[in-house]
Design a protein around this nucleic acid. Structure first.
Lengths: 362, 362
DNA sequence: TATGATGGATAAAAGGTTTTATCAACCGTC
DNA sequence: GACGGTTGATAAAACCTTTTATCCATCATA
């Protein structure tokens, strides 16, 4: 169907080799006269020749394509925003270097090796690497280089990791809140995520920092967020006087803000809220959300660059890059005032000045 | 480097043909005995054979890959959320059918034909198709099927479109607001987007619906959103008494909400706000945003399905699918009350009950 | 004993490109 | 006149798979 080198060669009255040389360079022992070259170019132009990159890839075993592996892409638009940011960062860097991006989702753990080594990609970036031992082994011996993005690094396998210092990030939160005078902080976790390496690192950091700052923190201060609207009200009514909340991710933090608002609990006057993952989303809440920033865009780009290097100069020693987190202080945190202690008021009906949003009646 | 059919064939002591037949079926005149088959399977297993899909694609000229073209992917994480939703919908449908997805960004308009026809993809979905005549011509004669997603359809070119009824969507907004008693509505546009077919369709719908509902609407009621914090305050101070705002997209709507909040303007008591594109984002604002919903996830999936059909049964007649919009009424709209007329109060310092979020002091 | 069907397997072409090795011709030099 | 260097160009292999055409037995039927 398509126009091939052969067609162009015939049209120009030369060999395939000549056309290949003129149009795509390389081939050191092949020399072409100026006139022949222009004739070839003219013919290619006239026939609208488009090189078949599949054939080229077969020959060169290079596709100039990088695969991005998402453990659960299914919910890209519903998940926390940093999934989008990772994709964004990786894509930006790839495109800048004229690489193509293909997305792999729900890669079977049994056939990881196969999927990655079928020749379609030159390398892969794996977001949120799973922990299964055999998967890691497959990856470590994969025929293409693989970089783990945004996964706390296990120590043993021979892979390169780009992640952030989750433990340090959690510490920032404690430091910030305790500097503002908060003593009791609720840690809001998400079901199903609590055994990922990232989550455990954050919780670990939080625990230790509390200990060092002499803040009381027990198992009871960890709650699991369900999507139930009443949860916040229940908690607010029945819990000891926490004045701070640390939400393990941005989406949960947003939910806390909204529920607080609906219950007439004023943030940050009555309650300070901090989230993990300072994303554009945090700018859109009201009040804007104080949150731990992992430089995710930078990390994603870095992961891509590591791959480029591996592909250019052969595989490097596996390394672990850990980016420090910072804290973006916004409007959702404020000093703990003594006045907050007398906060046991009815919460069933919002007595705040803002209407219950769901009802929307004046 | 990799293990090939040839290696397996040698290991099993049979021909390449036999291995190919056993491992990948097809080839009608090839028959294999049970014992031979098991021997082959065993050898393949032992050698960890992974079929080279590039070679296969070259032979079959099928890649089982669909390209998704984004005009400006550069800002995926900053742009309105429906870009993510489109990606999500397309991806879901592709993966469900075991297609691969590759993302193309900033495709050169000069070489559209080439990029799409280099054999890497079986088909493409183009989000926000540009209007240039020559680009459309190239696409219409492309060697692979192309579907335009979320682009108001020009009438002439021979392409298949999946889009929504932008004009009708805008009408819904007018109907809703006028039913609530609003008379003056501000249309908030975004610079640089105002000459896209979608934008003009929305504005057209809005204009006509106002006319039919006998609402006054002039050119002065169209403002362009800049990212300046003072814009809302300026507008609120100097404009005639609008009681409604229609923001051309979700992100702008969110910004309006925030600015209103900061200026102590209460939504929906003082002002009703409606956005275009009802996305998960609209659930997270406070109050939650009333917005026009285009069934974007459904549309994206449909676009993918159209491609599948083209690929299976040969090209179809080009068609135009237009999805109706609906209105998701949330908390940001409320009846226009007479009390609002006396609203000329100072706005420089927020006198609302909520603290200025940026300062965050109690 | 032909004839024909069937089961089991293979050779070889095709798909489009890259790249090495080879070749022909020409010019200049010793 | 033999040799060497340079320019211009090509043939052909290799990359790995799919698929058709072909082949050889074997066995049943007429």
């Amino acid at each position: 169907m398509g126009v091939t080198l052969k067609d162009v060669a015939e049209a120009a009255g030369v060999s395939i080799t000549a056309v290949s040389k003129v149009l795509h360079g390389s081939g050191k022992s092949v020399r072409i006269a100026k006139e022949t070259e222009t004739a070839i170019r003219e013919a290619a132009q006239r026939l609208q020749y488009v090189p078949n990159s599949v054939a080229r890839s077969l020959r060169t075993s290079r596709t100039r394509t990088i695969g991005l592996v998402f453990e659960n892409f299914g919910s890209l638009s519903e998940g926390p925003m940093y999934y989008v940011l990772m994709l964004d960062g990786v894509a930006q860097e790839l495109f800048r270097n004229h690489y193509r991006l293909t997305i792999l989702a729900e890669v079977s753990h049994k056939h990881v090796g196969g999927t990655l080594s079928d020749g379609r990609m030159d390398g892969a970036i794996w977001c949120k690497l799973p922990m299964e031992e055999d998967v890691l082994a497959q990856l470590a011996h994969s025929r293409i280089p693989v970089v783990a993005l945004n996964t706390e690094a296990p120590t043993h396998p021979r892979l390169t990791y780009v992640s952030c210092d989750n433990e340090g990030g959690a510490r920032l939160v404690v430091d910030h809140l305790s500097a503002l005078g908060h003593r009791r902080v609720l840690y809001v976790m998400e079901t199903g995520e609590d055994d990922t390496p990232d989550a455990t690192a954050r919780l670990r950091g939080f625990r230790r920092a509390c200990q060092e700052a002499c803040l009381p923190f027990t198992e009871d201060d960890i709650v699991f967020w369900n999507r139930d609207a009443s949860q916040f009200a229940d908690w607010w009514r029945s819990y000891p006087p926490h004045t701070g909340v640390f939400a393990w991710n941005e989406r949960v933090a947003g939910a806390v803000l909204r529920r607080a608002h609906e219950c007439g609990v004023h943030v940050p006057r009555d309650l300070s809220v901090v989230g993990f993952d300072s994303t554009p989303f945090c700018e859109t809440t009201s009040p804007p959300l104080t949150a731990v920033r992992q430089p995710i865009l930078e990390m994603a780009k870095h992961a891509a660059r590591i791959l480029f290097e591996s592909l250019d100069k052969g595989p490097d020693e596996p390394r672990v890059f850990t980016y420090p987190c910072t804290l973006d202080v916004r409007g959702s945190t404020a000093p703990a005032a003594a006045v907050r202690r007398n906060r046991r008021k009815p919460v069933e009906t919002s007595n705040g000045p803002i209407l219950d949003a769901e009802r929307g009646n004046p």
